[in-house]
Simulated assay, not measured.
Amino acid sequence: MNRYSATSWDRLLTCHHDWKIICLELIKYIDHSIFCGYRGEIEQNRAVASGNSELRWPLSKHNQYPSMAIDMGPYFKELKNTDWEDALAFAAFAGAVLTIAKQLYMAGKISHQVIWGGDWDSDGRTRDHKFRDYPHFELTEENVWNL
């Protein structure tokens, strides 16, 4: 059975309640790590400087507490890590996250829809964006799923 490491769990605890519901359902099916929840000012501006974010403090959804954004990805037991170069693994993982989030939203168990950083406009295409942030997901009140 999959379970979170202490580090992933601590990061999840900095996130909005909807993320806790989504992730606790997701971990039942797919082993994954949580890389980031809430980010403070220094950490956010470092993420911009390193090219991992385009938004300076306090404009990222990671900068709200609890965090409306989460960075996470598939964990591979044989690697004892995430394969950061495997874009297809991140895309498959995103499909699972979005499916579970949509099911929970439709069942009234969460109050937000989810946007993935590999498909910012939720049109199903990943190549129509300059900035691709495959581990990034964020909660939104927009109707991105056209429900």
Rank of each mutant, 00 (worst) to 15 (best):
V97M: 02
L55M: 15
V114G: 08
L24F: 15
Y29R: 15
G40H: 02
Y65V: 03
G124K: 11
G40C: 01
S50M: 07
R3L: 12
K130F: 13
M72S: 15
R56L: 12
H129R: 02
E142F: 01
W120H: 07
L12C: 07
P58K: 14
S33N: 12
W84P: 04
D10W: 03
S53C: 08
K109A: 07
W9R: 14
E142Y: 00
L24N: 15
T14N: 03
H129P: 02
L59P: 00
F35T: 00
K28Y: 06
P135K: 05
Y75W: 14
K109H: 08
Y4F: 15
G51V: 13
F131W: 10
D18G: 04
W19D: 04
I22E: 12
Y38F: 13
D31I: 02
F90I: 00
K130P: 06
A92G: 05
W116D: 04
Y38M: 02
Y75R: 07
D86K: 02
G117T: 06
Y29G: 03
C36L: 01
R56C: 03
P74C: 03
C15P: 07
I34W: 01
I22T: 11
K20G: 13
H32V: 11
K80S: 12
E54D: 12
S111P: 03
M68S: 07
W57A: 08
C15I: 10
D119R: 10
P58N: 12
A96T: 15
H16C: 05
P66I: 06
N2L: 04
I30E: 15
D133N: 12
E78Q: 09
A92Y: 09
W19F: 05
F137G: 01
D31H: 15
P58S: 11
H62S: 10
D10F: 09
L24Q: 15
Y134I: 02
H129W: 05
N63K: 08
C15R: 04
G118I: 09
V144H: 01
G95E: 11
S8M: 09
Y29W: 14
L104M: 11
S67W: 03
A92F: 10
G124M: 06
G40L: 00
G118N: 10
Y75G: 04
T126G: 14
A6G: 03
P135G: 03
H136D: 02
P74I: 09
L13H: 09
W57C: 08
H112L: 01
E43C: 00
G40P: 00
S122P: 04
A92R: 13
P74Q: 04
P66L: 04
D83E: 07
P58Q: 10
I21A: 07
D119F: 09
G51D: 14
S60V: 14
R39W: 01
N146S: 03
A96H: 14
G124A: 07
L147T: 05
W84Y: 13
L12M: 08
L12D: 09
Q113L: 05
W19L: 02
W84D: 05
T14V: 08
Q103H: 13
H62L: 12
I34L: 03
K130I: 12
M1P: 12
